[in-house]
């Protein structure tokens, strides 16, 4: 069993997102470690991009600061290696936009990511139509497929069928960011996706509170929390402690 499969042994799983380099590189490493030690089952490790067009203001702001503080793809991959060295053994999925990966060199990027200890990739601006080039070089690691409420039935079928690792189901028609309430019809959407795949279905975008996570956890195999995680931890005087508390509160809600 690989790390991702093991992580899904106890569902629903908790999957926070946090960008490397925010509020600075060292703190982000400590934060990710604290999330892992306090109940995160899988972490989406963010790579920063100057033009994150699928992201709301919270993640835009955080990744902008990471860039201002000098984060690069290379430093991000080194940080993943460092996390492994410090004993983080849950899956770490690299989440970032395509252009910095292209600039790094796709083959080199995939190789260095695997070597550093990453377990897969999420690339929001790389839909199924364009993913062949990346898949050619990807080796054993999965490219996590995304589905959205707007995906038509035949797209859903086609994309879900080829899913590896898990499906990232975008719960709302929109960009990342917290929402007051869960998207309507989420249950049906999840059920629809499940018709086409046995891969775990994880839901992200718009989930901000442990209560919302608990609701989603009743329907999905995993709950992805991005903006709320970044905002709570980034806004704290003691980010590492807050990360621990944050992870525990969601872990508790998903029991």
């Amino acid at each position: 069993m690989n790390r991702i499969e093991s992580a899904f042994a106890n569902k629903p799983i908790f999957m926070p997102y946090f960008p490397l380099g925010y509020p600075d590189l060292e703190t982000s490493i400590d934060v990710i470690k604290a999330l892992a030690k306090n109940g995160a089952d899988l972490i989406e490790v963010g790579l920063s991009f100057s033009d994150p067009l699928a992201d709301g203001p919270v993640i835009q702001h955080a990744t902008q600061i990471a860039l201002e503080k000098g984060i690069t793809v290379k430093k991000s991959l080194e940080a993943v290696k460092e996390l492994r060295k410090r004993g983080v053994d849950i899956p770490l999925i690299l989440m970032g936009y395509y252009n910095p990966m292209l600039a790094y060199g796709l083959e080199k990027f995939v190789r260095d990511a695997a070597e550093a200890g990453a377990d897969g990739f999420i690339i929001p601006d790389l839909p199924a139509e364009e993913s062949e080039e990346f898949e050619k070089v990807i080796g054993d690691l999965p490219l996590i497929r995304m589905l959205a409420p707007t995906s038509s039935t035949d797209r859903m079928e086609r994309i879900a069928r080829s899913a590896e690792g898990f499906i990232y189901l975008v719960s709302v028609t929109g960009i990342t960011g917290e929402r007051k309430s869960l998207a309507e019809g989420l249950g049906e959407l999840i059920a629809q996706v499940r018709e086409h795949t046995s891969a775990p279905v994880c839901v992200g975008f718009g989930i901000g509170t442990p209560e919302q996570a608990r609701e989603v956890g009743k329907m999905a195999d995993g709950v992805i929390v991005g903006s709320a995680c970044v905002k709570t931890i980034g806004g704290s005087e003691k980010p590492v402690e807050t990360a621990g508390e944050f992870a525990r509160s969601f872990r508790e809600a998903l029991r």
């Binding site: 067009l53 699928a54 395509y98 929001p124 601006d125 790389l126 839909p127 199924a128 139509e129 364009e130 995304m146 589905l147 959205a148 409420p149 707007t150 995906s151 038509s152 797209r155 994309i159 975008v170 028609t173 929109g174």
Partner: peptide
């Protein structure tokens, strides 16, 4: 697609899944 999406190696549809439809 009904029309070619690319101009040689350029062009394409690098957008989030939400927008593909």
């Amino acid at each position: 697609t009904l029309l070619p999406t690319k101009f040689g190696p350029y062009g394409g549809q690098f957008v989030p899944e939400t927008l593909m439809p």
